[in-house]
């Protein structure tokens, strides 16, 4: 088991999916520490707050369609505070919506590592958690 990933975030408004994600990670023993947010705003507030510097995630699974602050808006806000974040964070876009525009947008986005289509694809998840994606990018 690879322990590259210490903290994983799931940002998704779908409560069932958040539960499933957490459970899946637990069962597969992919990561010991899963934190969830139901929208982008809560997550960005957490990231931007210096108090939380020690609890920043290694990896974020980000949903696109969410109320209050959606995935793309989160990415814009993330760029603005990125310089204040010391940790290297890998971001995966996760959505059930197969939109060609979104895929292109994700592929061309410098801060997004890859695009994962729901439901959970075990192979993609294992790669994501073991850092295979990051190696590929680097």
């Amino acid at each position: 088991m690879d322990h590259t990933t210490q903290i994983a975030w799931i940002i998704d408004d779908d409560e069932v999916y958040r539960f499933g994600f957490r459970k899946y990670v637990e069962v597969k023993e992919l990561c010991a520490n899963v934190v969830d947010f139901s929208n982008g705003r809560d997550a960005i507030n957490f990231l931007g707050d210096a108090v939380n510097a020690a609890n920043l995630p290694d990896i974020i699974f980000l949903d696109i369609d969410m109320p209050v602050m959606n995935g793309w808006e989160f990415m814009v806000a993330f760029e603005q505070i990125r310089t204040r974040i010391s940790k290297k964070i890998t971001i995966f876009l996760v959505t059930s919506c197969i939109s060609y525009e979104d895929i292109l947008h994700a592929q061309n986005h410098p801060d997004i590592t890859d695009y994962i289509i729901k439901p959970i694809n075990s192979q993609q998840f294992n790669l994501a958690f073991t850092g295979e994606f990051r190696k590929k990018i680097a």
Partner: peptide, 18 residues
């Protein structure tokens, strides 16, 4: 319908592994 189908599949997989 896709998101429900996905979630349902996810739950069933978890159920098997639980």
């Amino acid at each position: 319908l896709r998101s429900y189908a996905g979630n349902l599949q996810l739950m069933l997989n978890l159920h098997e592994e639980s």
